[in-house]
């Protein structure tokens, strides 16, 4: 062992500023904060729904302020980033083997994108957007 072993300094709090790919990773990590908060908003909405019409409509009215509009707009942007990055790695995370061969990446990722588009359209039609 050498007398002065080389210890590379890595800051536990600022390491991700060192390279763009670390920043992209951390951007994806941050999406969990927005989606986590939105999940709690969904829970509160369902709770108000179970209490009756007036509490539920108060909940919808309470959403109508600049802070929640800004939050939901950011949450939508981060959720889209989360979806794109998730589907792009799907061929690596969920490889599908057919016989001896793995299905091509484009087929696995493309399948996810098609399913995503179908489900999004179904949800928006159900909600009466179109």
């Amino acid at each position: 062992m050498s007398r002065y072993p080389y210890v590379r300094e890595v800051s536990p709090t600022t390491w991700y500023f060192r390279a763009p790919r670390y920043m992209r990773y951390m951007t994806r990590e941050v999406t969990s904060i927005f989606i986590g908060i939105f999940t709690v908003i969904m829970l509160v909405g369902l709770s108000r729904l179970s209490e009756g019409q007036a509490p539920y409509e108060d909940f919808l009215a309470a959403l109508n302020n600049p802070f929640s509009v800004i939050f939901l707009f950011l949450a939508l942007a981060f959720a889209l980033y989360n979806s794109f990055t998730w589907f792009n790695v799907a061929p690596k995370a969920m490889p599908i083997q057919v016989g001896e061969e793995l299905m091509p990446d484009i087929v696995v990722a493309g399948g996810h994108y098609i399913l995503w588009a179908i489900l999004s359209v179904v949800i928006l039609i159900w909600a009466g957007i179109f």
Partner: peptide, 12 residues
């Protein structure tokens, strides 16, 4: 990943 963007859009 499949449903969050659509649901957040409705809430927005």
């Amino acid at each position: 990943s499949l449903v969050a963007p659509a649901i957040i859009l409705l809430t927005l």
